[in-house]
């Protein structure tokens, strides 16, 4: 394939992955890494390097708008970023020494889990009850936001902060080791463990994703894993796709659309796991 054809094909694929990622609520990177390796024959580490760049690009745009509207909690994000960046540093160093097939297996499993979370009905109900977590009080891990659907100001305060912190280290580890944003895992920690409102979790996770990815990106870069001619079309494409997907989602308001994409995600997850076992699917 000529470079022109390759670049255009990667750009188009990245737009698709970015849009699908936004519609599924996954993020483009975790979809793109298997696509680049399986269909374009790109080295796994180049694919991870391109993905981590696209993660920073999309996170910056999304985080900027969520911070302005007050949905993203800056203090909460910075506090938890200490854990995710710690995890990312560990993960990015590990990615340089762990054999490729183990990375493929981990990516396949992470993708399977993410697919599962998109199927699971996400409750938009607000967590109830007062909380008395000492760390939350000490670090002011609380806030308010205006809920459009409920038409009122919602007050929240984090619970189980220590547990959430540990889970965030794990999310950061996956991000650094695989070159993904691992937003699904960050939301899991904030929503399920710390019992924060879903909207706040998602918006705050967007801010943290960029910080976490920036920590691993430098390490990938110095190992020679970020190829300008691969990372550039991927970053531009995923960014365009993410805007497209978000616009489509806002109009559709129908979560059944997500189910249309699930077979693709399942296929990618299964083929990554099989690759790790030495079986290459068509």
């Amino acid at each position: 394939m000529s470079l022109t054809a390759f670049s255009l094909a990667v750009l188009a694929t990245s737009i698709g992955a970015g849009a699908a990622g936004a519609i599924l609520g996954l993020g483009g990177g975790i979809l793109l890494i298997p696509i680049l390796t399986i269909f374009f024959g790109v080295d796994l580490h180049y694919a991870m390097g391109a993905s981590i760049i696209s993660v920073i690009a999309t996170s910056s745009g999304a985080a900027a708008s969520y911070l302005r509207t007050g949905l993203s909690n800056l203090r909460l994000g910075l506090f938890l970023a200490v854990a995710t960046i710690g995890g990312a540093l560990t993960g990015a160093v590990l990615a340089g020494v762990v054999p490729t097939r183990w990375l493929e297996l981990t990516l396949g499993l992470a993708l399977s889990y993410s697919a599962f979370t998109t199927i699971r009905q996400l409750e938009d109900e607000l967590p109830q009850g007062a909380s008395e977590d000492r760390l939350a009080v000490r670090f002011g891990l609380e806030g308010t936001y205006h809920d459009m659907a409920l038409r009122r100001e919602v007050l929240y305060r984090a619970r189980r902060v220590a547990g959430g912190f540990v889970a965030m280290y794990g999310a950061g580890l996956l991000s650094g080791m695989l070159g993904i944003g691992s937003g699904a895992f960050k939301v899991l920690a904030m929503d399920d463990l710390m019992r924060l409102p879903m909207k706040v979790s998602t918006a705050t996770s967007n801010f943290m994703i960029g910080l976490t990815a920036a920590a691993s990106a430098g390490i990938y870069w110095s190992r020679g894993e970020i190829h300008t001619l691969i990372a550039a079309p991927v970053a531009i494409g995923v960014l365009m796709g993410a805007y497209l997907g978000t616009a489509v989602m806002a109009r559709l308001r129908n979560t059944t659309v997500r189910k249309l994409f699930l077979p693709i995600v399942v296929y990618l997850a299964v083929s990554m796991i099989l690759r790790a076992l030495g079986i290459h699917l068509p």
Binding site: G86, A88, L211, A214, G218, I219
Partner: peptide, 15 residues
């Protein structure tokens, strides 16, 4: 957080 990001650059330099 900023210091940790700078540590990542040190790690990168070491690699």
């Amino acid at each position: 957080v900023l210091a940790m990001l700078l540590v990542s650059l040190l790690l990168a330099g070491a690699i």
